[in-house]
């Protein structure tokens, strides 16, 4: 393909899904990756899986999405929802009952995590103790500075429920602090 044809194809991003997905992947992969790193406690493999999940969803919905220049919000929402699903699955897989049934030990995950960002990300320990939805609401509120109503829109819950999630998360952290402090 000549340079001009390539430029024309890139300019004309709406023409075919493949070109659009490619352009959107280049533009948004890092921001999705960084969000996923936050919820995956800095685990690159975990974050890559989330990036893949998000962009697979994009491939399936590309025809419904119209304005490629205005998909930041869509990526933010889908990335959070993918993280939430994965955290929930992980929580189930790591529950004592399932671990006992599958004969797994819980330490393996911690070891793997320790390899990645041991020092810096130790602060995420207390966020890790929260339920998945609480964790997302707490981080969106305190780290992304989002309003409760906006968080409700992303998570698909009411504003009052978001308020409750954040309060519970704060209470859990205070309790954790108390335990840690003693």
């Amino acid at each position: 393909m000549t340079t001009d044809s390539r430029k024309l194809a890139l300019f004309d991003e709406e023409v075919d899904a493949r070109t659009r997905v490619r352009a959107l992947y280049r533009r948004h992969r890092d921001e999705v990756y960084r969000l996923a790193l936050r919820y995956g406690r800095g685990d690159p493999a975990w974050a890559e899986d989330i990036v893949q999940d998000v962009f697979v969803k994009l491939c399936r919905r590309i025809d419904e999405l119209d304005d490629d220049d205005d998909l930041g919000g869509w990526f933010y929402r889908v990335a959070h929802n993918c993280c939430l699903s994965r955290l929930r699955r992980q929580a189930v897989a790591e529950s004592p009952a399932v671990r006992w049934l599958l004969g797994r030990r819980g330490a393996a995950r911690d070891d793997r995590r320790a390899e990645h960002r041991a020092g810096l990300l130790a602060v995420f320990d207390f966020v890790d103790a929260l339920a998945p939805k609480q964790r997302l609401a707490f981080c969106m509120y305190h780290l992304d500075g989002m309003e409760q109503a906006e968080i409700g829109e992303v998570l698909g819950v009411s504003k009052s429920y978001v308020c409750k999630l954040i309060k519970k998360a704060t209470a859990a952290i205070e309790e954790w602090e108390g335990r840690d402090g003693t």
Partner: peptide, 23 residues
């Protein structure tokens, strides 16, 4: 501390190999 750790993660980028794998 949490905000600082999150800020540190903001400078992370996907490795080229991972990016190609996902692509």
């Amino acid at each position: 501390r949490l905000a600082a750790a999150d800020e540190a993660l903001h400078h992370e980028r996907m490795s080229k190999a991972a990016s190609r794998r996902v692509a």
